[in-house]
């Protein structure tokens, strides 16, 4: 309702500005978005700029303590067991961490959504079989399966993405199917059908746009989950292998030095927490911002976004 009132007086704005305004209204989400932007920039450009610095060993600076400005800005967070500065290492490790999570989320969402759309829209045998597939994947402890598969298949970035993507497919499959089952019965879909639209047009032009916001919100949340899963695998030693680094691997590399150099494990762990926290906050915001019936909470301003 506020939408119509507002736009009555002002010229119509682009979608982007509307969303930036909605983002501005929720300061937590704004911080989260800015932080994530920084992480993504680190992931893209970090290795190009800091690769040499992050791998340069300095045995005199082994386990150097953090907050020591004399050693230069790179040592601000301390150094690891081989004297490599932690801050550049965290920046460089962002690439693998983000890349694996993004890959897994992308493929699970793509496959899961496609299967969910088919399962929800078709009334044939596929509608019966596909949900079963999701149940099968859901009914086993996924991390244990990942452990077995990775141990057998050699842990590499590609294999980790595949394993994580497979375990997350059911989330999108179930959500997409449930939503399609409901949207399919709505009037505008029926109308499109009567007007002779093809199945493909109905699914992609009429159903998918309604389902997509929910799926994107879930994907944001799931990104955090997948990141934690990859970190756990790397921590257990069956994820990314050294000399490649991810944040989870860095935590595990610092574990033997816990008692005398806590910072080795602490900083990369903090990087994981801040990133997942930002994703959670952003997903909370998206749930409201992408839902036309909830959006007023942000447009009103104030702190009522519950």
């Amino acid at each position: 309702m506020t939408e119509t009132l507002k736009s009555a007086g002002e010229p119509p704005k682009g979608r982007l500005t509307t969303f930036l305004k909605l983002l501005w209204a929720d300061k937590f989400a704004l911080f989260a978005a800015v932080f994530l932007l920084v992480v993504v920039l680190c992931a893209i450009f970090g290795p190009l700029l800091l690769e040499t610095l992050a791998t340069k060993q300095n045995l005199r600076g082994r386990n150097a303590a953090p907050f020591d400005l004399e050693a230069g800005w790179a040592m601000i967070l301390g150094a690891d067991a081989l004297g490599r500065p932690l801050l550049p290492r965290i920046v460089v490790a962002a690439q693998n961490t983000i890349f694996v999570a993004a890959g897994a989320v992308f493929f699970s969402m793509l496959i899961g959504t496609a299967l969910g759309l088919i399962a929800g829209y078709s009334r044939g045998r596929a509608a019966q079989m596909i949900p079963r597939l999701g149940d099968v994947i859901m009914s086993f402890p996924s991390l244990l399966l990942a452990v077995i598969v990775l141990y057998i298949l050699e842990p590499s970035v590609g294999n980790i993405i595949i394993v994580l993507a497979i375990t997350r497919i059911p989330i999108y499959l179930r959500t997409a199917r449930a939503e399609v089952l409901e949207v399919r019965e709505r009037m505008f879909v029926q109308a499109a059908k009567v007007m002779g639209a093809s199945d493909r047009r109905i699914v992609f032009r009429h159903i998918l746009p309604v389902v997509l916001p929910t799926l994107l919100t879930i994907a944001t949340l799931d990104f955090a989950f997948v990141m934690l899963a990859e970190s756990s695998l790397s921590f257990l030693g069956i994820g990314i292998q050294a000399p490649d680094i991810t944040w989870g691997l860095m935590v595990s590399q610092g574990r033997p030095y816990l008692t005398n150099a806590w910072w080795l494990s602490f900083w990369p762990g903090l990087a994981i927490i801040l990133t997942t926290l930002s994703l959670n906050l952003l997903s909370n915001w998206m749930r409201i911002a992408l839902d036309p019936t909830q959006r007023w909470r942000l447009e009103m301003g104030g702190r009522k976004n519950g």
Partner: peptide
């Protein structure tokens, strides 16, 4: 609860041990 849902358990375990 948001922080709790975001934290990797292995990291919490390590920090708690320390």
């Amino acid at each position: 609860s948001l922080i709790g849902a975001s934290a990797p358990d292995f990291w919490i375990a390590i920090v708690a041990i320390v």
